[in-house]
Nucleic acid binder design. Structure first.
Ligand SMILES: [Mn+2]
Ligand SMILES: [Mn+2]
Ligand SMILES: [Zn+2]
Ligand SMILES: [Zn+2]
Lengths: 157, 157
DNA sequence: AAATTTAATGAAAGCAATTTTCATTAAAAA
DNA sequence: TTTTTAATGAAAATTGCTTTCATTAAATTT
């Protein structure tokens, strides 16, 4: 699952070195936790998972590291409406995996989807160009989320 | 700018009455503040603006009222990434005005746009149908935001 | 126009997520 | 090794928002 750089280190070591950041135990573990899940973890979730492996890591460090990773572009931060941040690795083992989200407003379930992305991509890039021109923005990113009820929650109502 | 119902009351009085809600001074003022701006105000922003007109209104009431207005569908709540909610009237004088956003990640400036909405709508509804089917979701809403640098912030860098 | 009812309000306390502070630790450079 | 300094963890602080509860004031009834 993990990718190595041919020198015996995980692929992200170079990124850290390049920025002058140190490679520490907490950082290693946090990246490990994130790379082993497909869920959208909160800082607390990460803390709990990390804690199982190495109980000395503090919640503060988890917050700090997640922030750093977001800054570095290795991790995406999302807000699905429950006013607590969710984190997710920006690039999987197979490289970038930009995707959009489907969020259940009742139970909070989040589904990643990449289907329909081709058509979307088409339109989005056209839209980006148009918007950039008209409003003088340099667009670097976009966020698309659909909200609704998942099957289970629909039945409950 | 304000619209009346022909009986001397603002258009939203009916909505309130219909739901059994009372028309109070704080509610009147909060709606007034929201209808007089094109910005995306935080609860605090609303509080400050309201306070100038009528200093007796408390922050609690601002929060409660905004929540109520969101519930009623008169106001939209957004999160542009700075973990504080922003509010905006759902319908302008010219009726519903669903729109999307362009957000500057540096200065936080937010631009509304309605261009390209037709094309987007087209694609979105198709996407919604597809997603609904595949993932068994009942989709009721979507959020689209583009992130980047506004002209001023691009120059600064 | 009172009196009555009860939803709405404001101040204060509470809360959860996140950030700051600061003394200590441990990567990495020398 | 020794030295340097970024990173850490515990505790305290801050932020945005919610809850509680006694008081007030819309709206309804008299
Ligand atoms: Mn995802
Ligand atoms: Mn807007
Ligand atoms: Zn659900
Ligand atoms: Zn800007």
């Amino acid at each position: 699952m993990q990718r190595w750089d041919g020198y015996g280190s995980p692929w992200w070591h170079g990124r850290f070195r390049g920025c002058g950041y140190r490679i520490t135990v907490p950082r290693r573990i946090i990246l490990d936790v994130l790379s082993k899940t497909s869920e959208h973890l909160s800082a607390e979730d990460v803390y709990v998972a990390v804690h199982k492996i190495y109980p000395n890591v503090g919640l503060t460090t988890v917050y700090r590291t997640l922030e750093l990773l977001v800054q570095m572009g290795l991790v995406f931060r999302f807000d699905f409406g429950d006013r607590k941040a969710r984190y997710e690795l920006a690039m999987g083992p197979k490289g970038m995996r930009h995707h959009h989200h489907l969020v259940c407003t009742d139970c909070g379930r989040v589904v990643d989807y990449t289907d329909f992305l081709d058509e979307e991509k088409e339109l989005l890039s056209r839209t980006e160009v148009g918007l950039a021109e008209k409003y003088n923005f340099t667009i670097s990113n976009h966020l698309i989320q659909f909200y609704g009820l998942c099957d289970k929650c629909r039945v409950k109502k």
